[in-house]
């Protein structure tokens, strides 16, 4: 993509998260917390149902960021998990990631992000900072 400038609106990315995705993420990450697999356990601790791993959500944001920037080096990535992404057994949850370029300074790009499942904002104070090499991959 072309050089990023403050105010640029990045193309919205939408991901689906199914129960099978939660199983795959648990295997790959080692996070076998049953609240991501077992409806009964999830409800027993006061959750509305099986929820996605927060780090799966943040990982998908990381993927969106990498796709927007052509794999620019990530310097900071993080968020608060303010609302769970509930994943029903019979249909995947959706995750919509919107981003704008908030700031470009000293070789660092800061993105403003809005991450929702349905109408619900699921990440609070999401933050992504990338290093952009003037001759490098973010130009790709």
């Amino acid at each position: 993509m072309s050089r990023l400038s403050a105010g640029d609106v990045l193309p919205r990315q939408v991901f689906e998260i199914s129960r099978a995705d939660l199983v795959a993420y648990a295997e790959a990450s080692g996070d076998h917390n049953p609240i991501h697999q077992d409806e009964e356990v999830a409800r027993s601790v006061g959750l509305p149902g099986v929820i996605a791993h927060g780090m799966l959500t943040l990982g998908l944001v990381g993927r969106a960021v990498q796709e927007w920037t052509g794999g620019a080096e990530v310097v900071e990535l993080g968020a608060k998990f303010v609302s769970p992404v509930v994943v029903p057994a019979d249909a995947p949850a959706t995750l919509a990631v919107e981003g704008t370029v908030k700031d470009v300074a000293d070789g660092l790009v800061t993105l403003a992000l809005d991450v929702r499942s349905g109408d619900t904002k699921v990440l609070g104070m999401p933050r992504a900072v990338l290093r952009v090499d003037p001759a490098g991959r973010s130009e790709g």
């Binding site: 049953p34 609240i35 959750l47 780090m55 998990f81």
Partner: peptide, 14 residues
């Protein structure tokens, strides 16, 4: 117990 833990926030700096 792990199942009583919910991840509230995660940030990485690299």
């Amino acid at each position: 117990d792990l199942h009583r833990i919910v991840h509230g926030e995660q940030r990485f700096t690299y």
